[in-house]
Simulated assay, not measured.
Amino acid sequence: MHCSVWRFTGDPEALERGYRELMAQIPASNHVLHAAARTPDGLLIFDTCPSEQAYHAFFGSDQVRALFAEHGLREGVVEDFPLVAAYARRSEVTDATWDQQAGRG
């Protein structure tokens, strides 16, 4: 799995509103491990993908960037890393549990 960390600086309330509008357009079933936090100076998002290739394919697309921009999430600082470990709902999220959640296991 792969993790990306997005940091948007600006009005935290406006960024949260835009984020919530964006997330309303993305099915919850697309997310195995995803979190967003309001910070004193903006918004911080943690998102996981099944692989680095999937991360680049999704977030590198003009369509996805336009969707983020449409909701005021522009010029964020993005970092991506191989995931070492992840936990959700008191359980470890692994490749096997990812596949089960996605209906592939």
Rank of each mutant, 00 (worst) to 15 (best):
L22N: 05
D11N: 13
A85L: 10
G72E: 05
A57S: 07
S4L: 11
A24V: 14
P40K: 03
T97Y: 04
D62H: 13
T39R: 03
A36P: 03
W6K: 14
H2I: 02
P50F: 02
Y55A: 00
R90Q: 14
A54Q: 01
N30Q: 11
T9G: 04
E79T: 13
R17M: 08
R65F: 02
G105V: 02
H56W: 08
F68E: 09
S51Q: 07
T97G: 04
C49I: 08
L33I: 04
L67G: 02
W98Y: 08
A96K: 09
T39G: 02
A28C: 05
A54P: 01
G76V: 03
C3L: 14
Q25E: 14
F59H: 12
R90N: 13
I26T: 09
D95S: 04
R7G: 03
R65Y: 08
H2A: 03
Q63G: 13
A35G: 10
V64T: 12
Q100L: 14
Q25K: 13
A35Q: 03
F68D: 05
Y55C: 00
D41M: 07
A24F: 12
A54I: 01
E21Y: 11
L83N: 03
L43Y: 08
Y87Q: 07
A24E: 14
L43G: 07
P50Y: 01
P82A: 00
L33Y: 04
A86C: 01
V84T: 10
P82M: 00
G10V: 03
V5Y: 08
R90D: 12
V93Y: 05
H34P: 01
C49T: 15
Y19V: 02
F46W: 06
W98K: 03
Q101P: 01
E16W: 15
Y87W: 09
V78F: 04
T94D: 07
V64G: 01
A28W: 11
R7T: 08
V77T: 15
A57C: 00
R89D: 10
F59Q: 08
P50E: 07
S4R: 15
P50D: 04
T48C: 13
S4M: 13
H71R: 04
A69G: 13
W6V: 10
A57Y: 07
Y19C: 10
W6P: 02
E13V: 09
G76P: 04
F68H: 15
E21V: 11
E79M: 15
G72L: 06
E75W: 07
R89V: 00
A88D: 06
R90M: 14
R17P: 05
E79D: 15
F46I: 11
D41N: 11
G60N: 08
P27Q: 05
E70I: 02
L67K: 10
H56D: 12
M1C: 05
E70H: 13
Y55R: 02
L73E: 01
F8D: 03
S4V: 09
A28K: 10
T94M: 11
P27F: 00
L43P: 03
Q25S: 15
F68S: 04
A86V: 03
G76H: 06
